[in-house]
């Protein structure tokens, strides 16, 4: 006398789990997985001026990759993202360390709150404010001129450096939070043990704290690198449209030129480059991730 297999499965944990996740999963399938698959398919279709011809071709990829402008833009995107990531993570680590190790426990969530507030205010306006700060007649130039330090204004906008600093500002909390979490997980007695075994503070940091914080650092790198490579607003506003990145190119191909297969090929290529760079980075740091688990 035991329950029928179907009733038993219906009551099983697996069935309940799938049932529960299904509304969200179906939504993601229809509006994420299916569109991504479509983009992938489009990238192998022919463009017939305003219509898409459903015929297999690799011409879009050949066109895209043989175009020096595309290669320049892609290279610039990776370079800017890498630069932004480096700057953001380097600037964020000491803050995460400060909150985790120096700030008393009762104040920690207040500090985290303080750091997340700017993140929740209009992204566009935040980006634009950097234009205000770095502009020809902007805050820095007018201040420096007013103080008589410089005679003619400095040209700061429309540069990769300006793009980088704007994005580093935008993604700051994304870098701080994962590093903070992994620092919080470190058993404080390990550090005391390190010093007890005769290591200096600096060596303890180097040999104990940093390796244990690496999973968080790696997480921070991924979470900053991936979205920044697809940023559209900053190159437009801060780069003045003269230093387009891959998102701007996708937008142009898709909407302005309306060559969807080519746009799709650019998008897919960009995703593959992001994935490849990310995987390479993870592979180079695999030993830290093992420790982390």
């Amino acid at each position: 006398m035991s329950a029928s297999p179907i009733r038993r499965w219906a009551r099983s944990e697996a069935a309940s789990g799938w049932f529960m996740v299904s509304p969200t999963l179906i939504y993601a399938m229809l509006l994420l997985a299916a569109p991504l698959a479509t983009i992938f398919a489009y990238s192998f279709f022919k463009d017939g001026y305003l219509v898409v011809i459903h015929e297999f071709t690799t011409q879009n990829y050949i066109d895209a990759w043989s175009d020096p402008i595309f290669r320049t833009i892609l290279f610039r995107s990776v370079l800017v993202s890498a630069l932004v990531t480096l700057v953001t993570v380097l600037l964020a680590f000491p803050i995460a360390y400060f909150i985790s190790f120096v700030v008393p426990a009762s104040n920690k969530s207040r500090w985290l709150f303080l750091i997340t507030i700017p993140f929740w205010t209009s992204y566009l306006i935040r980006v634009f404010q950097w234009k205000v700060i770095l502009n020809f007649n902007g805050v820095i130039n007018s201040t420096l001129q007013g103080l008589g330090i410089i005679d003619s204004p400095l040209q700061m906008l429309n540069s990769i450096g300006a793009i980088a600093i704007t994005l580093a500002h935008a993604y700051a909390p994304f870098a701080i939070l994962p590093i903070f979490v992994s620092l919080e997980k470190i058993d404080r007695s390990l550090l005391e043990a390190g010093q007890d075994l005769g290591e200096s503070k600096l060596m303890t940091f180097w040999r104990v704290t940093l390796p244990l914080a690496m999973p968080g650092v790696i997480g921070a790198v991924m979470i900053v690198f991936i979205p920044t490579i697809g940023d559209y607003v900053t190159p437009e506003l801060i780069g003045g449209g003269k230093l387009p990145m891959v998102a701007n190119m996708i937008q142009k191909d898709m909407l302005k030129i309306d060559n969807k297969p080519l746009g799709a090929a650019v998008a897919v290529s960009a995703m593959f480059v992001v994935a490849a760079v990310s995987l390479l980075f993870l592979f180079l740091n695999r030993r830290f991730l093992k420790v982390g688990k």
Binding site: M1, S2, A3, R8, S12
Partner: peptide, 14 residues
């Protein structure tokens, strides 16, 4: 917990 085989009776009922 469901049992995989066998039976559990409470007060004579499966």
């Amino acid at each position: 917990e469901d049992i995989s085989s066998g039976s559990v009776l409470i007060d004579g009922k499966h």
